[in-house]
């Protein structure tokens, strides 16, 4: 009860105490459920793979090794995929956020005569999806298949992001823009000098959304560029490992073949399971390191204007 008392603070009625205690226990259970799968994967990634096969790895590695990571980072294809992942995340985020911000700025201007038209044509696309095949054929016509730009161009502007940025810009004092206009500033100057710098919190939020979306994407690689190793990404490589090890698991061959390799005199070996764990950690850690610092912003960005409605 010591912990509960400390967490619940002041004196209160018995009912309250029971409620708070149950609530705290529920939240702790939630935390365990959220964290365990990742911590378990981390432990497996740091454990010798021949030992992992024996099972029973939970939160700590039993036979500590960096070998799984060495193996992952020594593979040329994974390094190349890593580079593509980084490039698409950087380029996609910079261009995407810039484009979204510009659209958001134009429809935030109260006097703009196309404001309504642009807003509606963009919002409509949230529900009107042509579907996979027409989109595929379009990308083929545009020569995007087999190109890096298929990762960037089709998803350049996210309607939801535009709306979030627009709501933020509309919340800025209009007098700022008016006085800039008096001083002879055009719309581009107002956008670059006023709207953009003052919207940094929401820009940070949207950048996080776009960057995470780019980093985590694998389907466009799978559909458009699966035969081009140069344009593969980390998520797609991980997806391939996953489906390979699933296939091996289903046929019951995975563990045995890896075990055979370790018996046949190879000093250190890796199983698909260990590779998968190491790659999972590699692709997830960059995001897990970043998002807590942006939490304040994305919570605000998500709820901006939302609650008022």
């Amino acid at each position: 009860m010591g912990l509960i008392n400390r967490l619940t603070g002041k004196r209160r009625s018995v009912d309250d105490l029971i409620f708070d205690s149950i609530n705290i226990v529920l939240m702790l259970v939630l935390v365990v459920i959220m964290l365990y799968p990742m911590l378990n994967t981390l432990a497996i990634s740091l454990n010798a793979s021949t030992d992992t096969i024996r099972g029973g790895i939970r939160l700590l590695p039993r036979e500590f090794t960096w070998y799984n990571y060495q193996h992952v980072f020594n593979e040329a294809q994974i390094l190349r995929a890593g580079l593509t992942s980084i490039l698409r995340t950087l380029i996609g985020t910079v261009l995407g956020v810039f484009a979204s911000a510009m659209v958001a700025y134009t429809i935030s201007r109260p006097h703009f005569f196309l404001k309504k038209f642009i807003t509606i044509t963009f919002v409509m696309t949230m529900y009107m999806n042509a579907g996979l095949i027409p989109t595929y054929l379009l990308h083929r016509e545009l020569g995007l298949i087999g190109s890096f730009w298929v990762y960037i161009l089709p998803t350049l502007i996210g309607v939801f992001n535009v709306i979030v940025i627009r709501s933020f810009i509309e919340g800025l004092p209009e007098t700022l823009f008016e006085s800039a206009k008096m001083d002879g500033a055009g719309e581009f100057t107002q956008f670059f000098r006023i709207a953009l710098p003052l919207s940094l919190p929401v820009i940070a939020t949207v950048s996080l959304f776009v960057a995470v979306g780019q980093w985590n994407q694998w389907f466009d690689v799978f559909i458009y560029n699966s035969s081009i190793p140069e344009l593969s990404t980390l998520q797609y490589e991980l997806m391939k490992v996953l489906s390979n090890s699933n296939a091996a698991f289903n046929s019951g061959a995975g563990a045995e073949s890896a075990f055979a390799a370790s018996q046949s005199g190879v000093v250190e070996t890796v199983t698909p399971q260990s590779i998968r764990a190491a790659m999972t950690v590699v692709v997830s850690v960059p995001i897990i390191m970043v998002y807590p610092f942006l939490q304040k912003y994305f919570v605000k960005g998500l709820t901006i204007g939302g609650v008022k409605g």
Binding site: L30, V31, M34, L35, P37, M38, T41, V212, W215, N216, Q217, W218, Q235, L238, M239, L242, R276, T280, V283, S284, I287, I288, Y291, P292, Q295
Partner: peptide, 17 residues
């Protein structure tokens, strides 16, 4: 903060987990 974490993981990772 912990409850937001899985949202940032890809489905590839989540399916593996």
């Amino acid at each position: 903060t912990i409850s937001y974490m899985p949202h940032f993981l890809s489905w590839v990772v989540v399916a593996g987990l």
